[in-house]
Nucleic acid binder design. Structure first.
Lengths: 253, 253
DNA sequence: ATCAATAGTGTATTATTGACACAAGAGTAA
DNA sequence: TTACTCTTGTGTCAATAATACACTATTGAT
């Protein structure tokens, strides 16, 4: 929650800079140590958790807005970002509405406006990210998908919708390039799928199917150093991966 | 294209009624005599073709906006409507920009604003629709998907994106309830799929697969009257159809 | 009665999926 | 050094689903 001074200053600059009534919220998925992670912000003072979000500059393509917002939060450029839904319930920001309505008159008060929010989700390599709070946040950090704090506004809905979309996408598109390090083992990739889907998969069938997609390259050398049998390292064949992204796996019918 | 008086009047009421910077465009698919149809509007004077669209009232959920807009154009209520993408290029309305910019000063001129447009697509029973032009249109009519006029703004892109989405959806959801009359024959349904996909399908395999989905009920009586062997009539089992919509056909992985 | 057009139905072949078991490598502890 | 444990790599068989394909039945038109 902002102080009155912060609010006033922010509202003035926001009105000049951004399109009114439109926001962007990002669901940033990462994967680390076998757990699915989501990037969340904790706002100063009010203590609530939110998805990272922001606004669209008056003359900025919305894809760039989403990228800009995420770059500020993660340090990452050229993230895999996918628009998935617009949330347009007039009451969706009611909490903010009530929180700020007495601090500034309505026509100066950015936060008592109605906002449609465009949901984007991103898949990123956990290790590449340096979570950075924005000016209103005390904390920006990864949270386990299985152990989420309560989210403010409709952000729980946005997160759930993103996850559903991701799971659906698993059925007709390759996934993993953006979530895995450059090189990885088949069991590690399988773990990613199992985590997203929240279910166990058969090792052998997973490998057969995944290799069948023809988007993986097996490196000469297996991974060294770990205990147990050394697994092979794989990497995505970026050209074929992108082709698969465009065409999809199941050209059914 | 509007006259100056029309423009002025419209802009004043629009500013009071609607959220600025946000519009909705609808791609309404119908199916008739073996052809895929799309509902288009031809604007008075400028002669350009557009998708039916409109704006979001200041306190209206966007799903209702889309429904309202379509009801005005088609007479239909409770249409199957699906949000599929937001188009947010700042230059996407440049044609309108240029067309109207000299007629009113920018701060009064609704149409020189930037608009993000939310794309919805609808599937409707061709026969239920009574195309009705809006106040700016000379014509509202069905056009063959295979023989479209040139569309203004980015409406060709919006249409193509809708079609791609529809084709993708065919792979994991039932389709047809909203496009077919209550009762239909298997060859008619097949024709719908062939038209959407723009490819021939095998009669026997189509039927087996479609029946396998378990969402069709075969009526006792075959269709009478036509030449040739009388085909059976089918209808969708609405309950199972809706369940399939929610769960999807391929719970893969 | 024959023909032309369309609808209904089944089967054999092939490809894909799912279930399952054993062998190989690498560290660990005796 | 050897046996043990853990994990990875790989193959096969059975069930299921997808494909290709051909004949019979019904109806109106001649």
């Amino acid at each position: 929650m902002l102080t009155k001074e912060e609010l006033k200053e922010y509202c003035e600059s926001a009105r000049e800079t951004y399109l009114p009534h439109v926001s962007i919220d990002c669901v940033v998925f990462g994967f680390h140590e076998g757990l699915m992670k989501v990037l969340l912000l904790k706002i100063k003072n009010d203590g609530g958790w939110y998805l990272p979000g922001g606004f669209v500059r008056k003359n900025e393509p919305i894809e760039l807005s989403a990228n800009r917002i995420l770059k500020e939060r993660t340090g990452l450029d050229e993230i895999f970002l996918q628009q998935f839904h617009v949330f347009g319930d007039p009451q969706r920001s009611k909490e903010h509405f009530d929180m700020y309505k007495d601090m500034l008159p309505p026509d100066e008060n950015w936060f008592t406006n109605r906002f449609l929010t465009i949901g984007y989700y991103a898949l990123v390599d956990f290790c590449d990210v340096t979570p950075a709070p924005d000016q209103f946040s005390a904390v920006c950090s990864w949270c386990d998908l299985t152990d989420l704090p309560e989210l403010k506004l409709d952000h729980a809905l946005i997160l759930k919708t993103a996850l559903d979309t991701l799971r659906l996408q698993l059925n007709y598109q390759p996934i993993g390039y953006n979530l895995m390090p450059k090189e990885f083992t088949m069991p590690e990739l399988q773990k990613l799928y199992e985590t997203i889907l929240d279910k166990k998969l058969d090792r052998r069938n997973f490998q057969r199917r995944m290799l069948g997609f023809g988007i993986l390259t097996r490196s000469e050398k297996p991974r060294k150093g770990g205990a147990h049998k050394a697994p092979y390292l794989y990497s995505f064949d970026l050209e074929k991966y992108k082709a698969a992204l465009t065409e999809g796996f199941r050209g059914d019918w």
